[in-house]
């Protein structure tokens, strides 16, 4: 059902990279952006598994919006190796209003393409995507 949504399309590559991250664990993170000309969400960057959370956070531009997926590995209190897939809607306050609007109104439709997101975060400043936040939300 339609909503007050932007109607933005999603490039197939977005889904593909997400499936690779989920099933083959070949990426630590994926950064997505909206391509204004193509009017669709496209993959901007993928991070290899060896990268860590700081590398991920550093890949989010300070003045522009993005969507991102981060695969978070952690060890539970019972000493169990676990992982959780985070979806981050990055919308810094300093981004242009138009861009914030596009990302916010395209999010719902985009997220539906990525089956298997476990935790979702919406962040407008770096403190909202701090490592402590990720840790806190993982359990």
């Amino acid at each position: 059902m339609a909503n007050a949504a932007s109607g933005m399309a999603v490039d197939d590559e977005c889904k593909l990279k997400f499936l690779e991250l989920k099933a083959k664990r070949t990426h630590r993170f994926i950064i997505y952006k909206i391509d204004d000309k193509k009017k669709m969400v496209v993959v901007e960057k993928v991070g290899e598994p060896a990268l860590n959370y700081e590398d991920f956070a550093a890949s989010l531009p300070t003045n522009e919006c993005r969507y991102a997926i981060f695969d978070y590995d952690f060890v539970t209190e019972e000493n169990c190796q676990k992982s959780k897939i985070f979806f981050v809607a990055w919308s810094p306050d300093t981004a242009r209003v138009r861009s914030k609007m596009i990302y916010a109104s395209s999010k719902e439709r985009f997220k539906r393409e990525l089956d298997g997101i476990q935790v979702e975060l919406q962040a407008t400043d770096p403190t909202e995507v701090g490592f402590d936040v990720i840790q806190g939300r993982a359990n």
Partner: peptide
């Protein structure tokens, strides 16, 4: 509309 304009869904 207000929520979207602030970048929040």
């Amino acid at each position: 509309l207000t929520s979207f304009a602030s970048g929040r869904a």
